[in-house]
Amino acid sequence: MAQKYRIYINEKVILLTESEPKKADSYEKIDAQMFDLKIIYTWILAHHNKNFYIICTDAKLFMKNIIAGITLIEAAGGLVKNNKDEYLFIYRNDKWDLPKGKIEKDEKTKVAAVREVEEECGIKVSKLGAKICKTYHSYISKGEVVLKKTHWYDMSYKGKEKLTPQVEEGITDVRWFKPNHIDAIVKNTFPSILDVLVKEDLIKDKPALLSE
């Protein structure tokens, strides 16, 4: 199966693909030979288009080369489901989000995912499930273009603790959502979060930027 990767920059996406996108007319092509994320970052933000793609013979290798040339920050988080079949979301920076955070030195990815969920939401995770996916997004940190790789896991919760947002991390609300109310999340979240929800079949109508 052909490999595909997405790098998100705010509301925009760069698709790394081994074949032409089905809806190529809605994308702008970027030359693989000239691509440098640190250089093109500002151009992407200023461009009117939201969707970009790069054709590469080996998308996995191309992604490895991008990572090798930039500061990589690794994070982990989870999609938590309770015994009422509700899903846990946090509200931070005026957006709905999933709990996640940076992996500490020598910390295992799964351990970091659970720790961050528990710290940001004030609960104790009952069970760590399977890995959902990895997402990538790029942003400016201390004046430098960086790439964050986030590992996402399924989690379950059977406790009765009161949800407590970690305000020192800028979280102002933590809330359970039923699957039929997730439209409210879809309308005000990040593309990388949509990616996780699509992979878990929680979004019926796949957003255009995830249709390839």
Rank of each mutant, 00 (worst) to 15 (best):
K148G: 00
R115A: 08
D154K: 06
E120G: 05
Q166H: 05
V125N: 06
S156G: 00
K131C: 07
H151L: 01
H151K: 09
T109A: 03
K108V: 04
G170Q: 05
Y157G: 01
H137S: 06
I140D: 09
K95L: 08
V146T: 15
E144A: 11
P165R: 05
H137R: 12
K124I: 13
G170L: 03
H181R: 13
A112Y: 07
K131W: 00
K131G: 07
I185L: 12
K142S: 13
E168M: 06
V114E: 09
T150G: 01
D183R: 14
T135V: 05
L98T: 07
S141P: 01
I103W: 03
A130I: 11
D183F: 06
V167F: 04
V117R: 05
K105Q: 05
T164Q: 08
R115Y: 09
K158D: 08
H137D: 10
N180S: 13
K110S: 06
L98C: 04
A130W: 01
A130R: 11
W152R: 01
K162H: 15
I123T: 15
H137W: 15
I103P: 02
V186H: 09
I103A: 03
Y157E: 07
K158H: 13
H181Q: 12
K131V: 03
V145W: 03
I185C: 15
W96I: 05
K148M: 06
K178H: 06
T172K: 14
K108P: 02
Y139S: 10
K100R: 08
S192L: 01
E168C: 09
S138Y: 08
H181T: 06
E118P: 02
E104P: 01
H181G: 01
Y139L: 13
Y139F: 10
L163P: 12
D173E: 09
S156A: 08
L163N: 07
I185V: 14
S126P: 02
A184F: 15
I193T: 10
V167D: 10
T109R: 07
D173P: 00
D173G: 02
E116W: 08
P165K: 04
I171H: 08
G159A: 03
R175S: 10
P191F: 00
K95W: 09
Q166I: 02
A130T: 11
N180D: 13
H137L: 11
F177Q: 12
R115I: 12
Y136N: 10
E118V: 15
P165V: 10
T172L: 09
D154N: 11
P179W: 15
D106M: 12
A184H: 10
K148D: 01
M155P: 00
E120Q: 14
Y139W: 09
G122T: 11
V145P: 00
L128M: 15
I132S: 02
V114Q: 13
D106R: 05
W176M: 15
V145A: 04
S141R: 12
E119K: 12
